[in-house]
Amino acid sequence: MATIAKARGMRKVMNPPEARLWASLKLLRKQGFHFRRQHPLRGYFLDFVCLSRGLIVEVDGEGHEHTADWDRRRDAAMAELGLRTIRIPASRIRDDPHDVIDFIVRELEAAAPTRPLRGHPPRDGEGE
């Protein structure tokens, strides 16, 4: 339960670039792309994730240059789950928000839909 409480707390104190991106990502629901923010997964907190497309969007601020090794390990752990991470500099969200959203939409459209992490397997005769 502590993990969920921490995620909830992190959602309340998003920095300005994260808040701005979140406002734009919520609008993508109309196109069928549902994002979660500060989603806990395997001991990590993902800035934004669209589970149906297996895409994680991380906002990298100035402090991220000091965490490159940690970020690589985390990205590798997520890749093992079939999730791909894209990293967006906070300055790019501030300076070119429309270009950032266009880039994210292209990445979402290029990604094949995934099966949910939870739920029932397909019925006999469905799938491969």
Score class of each variant (00 low, 15 high):
residue 115 R to N: 04
residue 54 G to N: 05
residue 47 D to H: 08
residue 105 V to H: 04
residue 13 V to N: 15
residue 116 P to I: 02
residue 111 A to Y: 02
residue 83 L to T: 01
residue 34 H to K: 15
residue 66 H to Y: 14
residue 124 D to S: 15
residue 84 R to T: 14
residue 126 E to F: 09
residue 30 K to Y: 09
residue 98 H to D: 15
residue 115 R to G: 01
residue 19 A to F: 06
residue 65 E to K: 15
residue 59 V to P: 01
residue 118 R to D: 13
residue 15 N to I: 03
residue 93 I to M: 05
residue 52 S to F: 03
residue 84 R to K: 12
residue 100 V to W: 00
residue 114 T to Q: 15
residue 75 D to L: 05
residue 99 D to A: 15
residue 72 R to K: 13
residue 60 D to R: 07
residue 31 Q to V: 08
residue 89 P to R: 08
residue 40 P to L: 11
residue 97 P to A: 03
residue 46 L to G: 00
residue 127 G to D: 10
residue 56 I to W: 00
residue 105 V to C: 03
residue 39 H to F: 15
residue 110 A to K: 10
residue 37 R to K: 09
residue 57 V to F: 00
residue 104 I to C: 04
residue 90 A to G: 10
residue 80 E to I: 01
residue 17 P to Q: 04
residue 83 L to Y: 12
residue 42 R to W: 11
residue 110 A to E: 06
residue 42 R to N: 12
residue 44 Y to G: 01
residue 54 G to E: 01
residue 46 L to Q: 01
residue 80 E to G: 13
residue 30 K to F: 11
residue 46 L to D: 02
residue 68 A to S: 10
residue 75 D to G: 09
residue 114 T to V: 11
residue 93 I to K: 01
residue 35 F to S: 00
residue 105 V to A: 10
residue 49 V to A: 07
residue 23 A to Y: 05
residue 78 M to G: 06
